[in-house]
Amino acid sequence: MLEIKNLSFAPEGDKQILKNISLTIPDGKLVVLTGPNGGGKTTLAKMIAGINMPTSGSLILDGVDITDKDPTERAKLGIGYAFQQPVRFKGFTVRDILNLANGKPLTEDQLDEVLLKVGLEPKAYKDRDVDTKLSGGEIKRIEIAGVLLRKSKLTVFDEPEAGIDLWSFNSLISVFEELRETREVTLVIISHQERILSIADEIMLIQDGRLGMKGPREIMYPLICGDGCESCPAMEEGDCYGRDN
């Protein structure tokens, strides 16, 4: 379980990006962080991975304070991170980067399997360079393959749908569903995509650097993607998952 307590982030000389956010990511759940552009979602995701460090507040992973731990330590503690815009490397092949993600060299069968899982033909890709010659969709799939190999207990995906085609997107959804069903992993996905929201266990709305609404998909999805409060089942029970909840 990841507990985020009173987290704030204000880069020096810049406006405050995160404002006293507190939330809990339960184990084994698929949690989607959504909200308007510029609301602080990616910053929050990077805080979880240790790429950005908070100005104040704390992060507790399974009872251990990880607030001051760097990205390497957090990776070793089981936090994975898939970049919104995957990084390209001159001289690294797909095989190289996936071997690094795996922590040891993959067998040919393992390499083929993970590439097929993200919809890439192994023969055509495993020895290609991870450089600018790969399209946005191709490199995104390789990024996802790396995350699958990491076998992290908590993985943050920053807008996994960005830059990929519909077919890739559908297979990505299958990957998330399979991950949730076959492994006891926690997935935190930053997304605006209705389809991703529809498979969430919990949805949290981040806007203007604050945690707005949060709740189970059954409540949140209609509010965000449906007819607002009119379609919210909580209304019938006199409950509300709005900002003040």
Binding site: I51, T72, R74, A75, V87, L100, G103, R150
Partner: peptide, 11 residues
Amino acid sequence: EQIMKLRTLGL
């Protein structure tokens, strides 16, 4: 960003 990417892989 290249360094950071590899650090998120545990290096």
